[in-house]
Design a protein around this nucleic acid. Structure first.
Lengths: 206, 206, 206, 206
DNA sequence: TATGAATGAGCATTCATTCAT
DNA sequence: TATGAATGAATGCTCATTCAT
């Protein structure tokens, strides 16, 4: 049955090539340039061939989102497991979130592209396999540990969302504005995390 | 010379109508729907007419960005001037940044839309009239006051950029993910600011 | 206002050219070959131009049907008015029906093309201006005169429909099977009418 | 040799399935929907397989026509053989023609579909096995009997063609315009035959 | 016998833009 | 100032067919 398997692998491989090509176009040239022809061009197949692997353009977008989310979850899931304190575990998780965005900027952005969410039911993706909610739970758990440990009474969901926002802000600006005169990237990230995490366990002003 | 002036005013008025129509389409339907015909339809003129006011579509986008930036600057500039302490002034400034984004989401997003920045030289916009740098300076000044006041030795640019990122994260997520189960908006914002500003003047972990 | 009128005429003229070209393609090459490109080719304009005159392909088909029906009605309406007897008037009307089909075979066939009726609401066309019902009424009236005159008790609607069918049979076969070894056309038509009309006023077998 | 025979039978069986599927699509959805993929879908084989049984789409159409004609001939051939008079035999033959069209509208229409005759050499079909000419001869023979019997001097070919046209008119209208407010079908058909046959043996006006 | 992979040609339609008026 | 006419280029998608297996 080696033949069947080889064919299977070939098929999967081209399918992945299509997704890769699409992602590359999406990020390098924008949603407006993501045409079936452009994809075909890049993978050096005819446009028709794409339809043998995906029903239509929207399905490509759907799987692009799905795949991006899966990668993100996998990347972040195990981060900080071995850290000794709740705060370090949380910090490692946030850092992993940022690192994923910076190391796979195309995949990161895809899940935030407005044009895509108009063509793909983001809801259906976000709930697929509970990926999104599992990520959210992971974050809440890490935050909760810290709050408990510090005897802090803040609402865990509020804090989680705020921290998510902070990290998203850093990633999306660094990715989206590459020409801006940023300070040294590592310093910016660590300072950002410092500020957020220092402030987390201290009595607030508001 | 009243006639010339009136004509000038009329001209300016239609020009503004075009920009308004474009911005509305951009936000309600997305960049993909922003066609010259769609704009023409909305202002109830022929598509050709638009070319009398703007050289081409990209020029519309350019002025859309410009105008958005001006509004943003105007909105933020005076915020917090009357506050009594450096920290409150900074907080007011950051809050104004967030409030602008939430009250004029269309204008806010325009300056961050990836599709647009591909058609418009963002650099030229950002430097136009020094708007961007003036905003940056304002922010740095506010941050500097706080750092000095607190005897904190952090780099002012690093902190400024981190805070900007935090605020941008909050705004862009709230705008971009309206369906997400956010905690109460006011609470999220204030908690976010608390965390950032509390952490700012405290000795960090990193 | 001469300019406006000239423009109006030009516009109407190209619109008609489009319809003519479409009809010609339809009949010479079949529905399957009726593409916007083919039409454009024939009128020597770009495909895009067609959309300035018709909203889409279906609208072209719709107007093609409409126009064909109008022509047919106009052609048949006055036939036989001056004839001296009811029978001669009916015969003239039927003959006009056949003659229309043979002299404008393309227009005749359009209203019977199955593929078209799948894209155009035939009902809406048939009832437009009551053209179809007016034609039906005309026919029934002519038939009724004959039946009354001959003291024949047949149902007028049944007879009308049967006669219509007979004429349609002659036209559609002569048009649709040009290569068949038909007897001399004039003889066939007149014999067909003879048979139908002779039998009409005679007591039937069934 | 049983194996060979079984294979032969299997082959013939799939071949027939293809024709059946094609005919069904043709009538239910129209020529425009008759694609190789649609056929393949319906017979639950791959599109490629069809090419093992038919050289191409046109060949399918060709055999569809052929088969339809054979069925029609078979249906009509024996009609009226037992009738006692020439007129009743002719009437039974015409009635059979109409009944075939109404009971197998798909097969009937196929031989008259304009789109098909563009892809299939109708001439070659009509002469295949002399089916068409044998049908014509049958009709002429039936007509001739009547004319002789009635001492009528009309040309037998002219009359045959006229009667064929009459019957075709009835069938094609009833099939092609199912939504038209027809009088009761049986009555329409019998009246049509009455008129045609009554008029046949009576001295004409033309 | 049967099929999956692949493709070139074609389709209806939309868009930004130009031109003459 | 404003527009109607026109177009070339592009888009997503379908189809009949071929080829290697």
């Amino acid at each position: 049955m080696g033949i069947v398997e080889r064919k299977e692998r070939q098929r999967e491989s081209l399918r992945q090539e299509i997704l890769d090509a699409s992602r590359e176009i999406l990020l390098s040239a924008g949603y407006g340039q993501l045409s079936m022809r452009a994809i075909a061009n890049r993978i050096e197949y005819s446009p028709t061939t794409i339809y043998l692997y995906f029903k239509n353009k929207d399905e490509i977008l759907y799987h692009l989102c799905l795949e991006a989310l899966e990668r993100q979850f996998e990347f972040i899931r195990t981060a900080g497991c071995n850290e000794s304190s709740p705060l370090l575990r949380l910090r490692a998780t946030l850092r992993a979130y940022i690192d994923f965005g910076l190391s796979e900027p195309d995949r990161y952005q895809i899940t935030y592209m407005a044009d895509i969410s108009r063509h793909v039911s983001m809801a259906s993706i976000l709930e697929h396999g509970g990926l999104a909610s599992r990520l959210r739970e992971l974050m809440c758990q890490r935050v909760n540990e810290v709050l408990v440990d510090a005897g802090c009474t803040r609402d865990v969901h509020t804090v989680s969302q705020a921290l998510w926002a902070h990290c998203h802000g850093i990633v999306s600006l660094l990715i989206g504005r590459p020409d801006f005169p940023w300070v040294e990237r590592e310093k910016l990230i660590e300072t950002g995390l410092d500020i957020s995490l220092n402030g987390l366990t201290r009595r607030g002003t508001g």
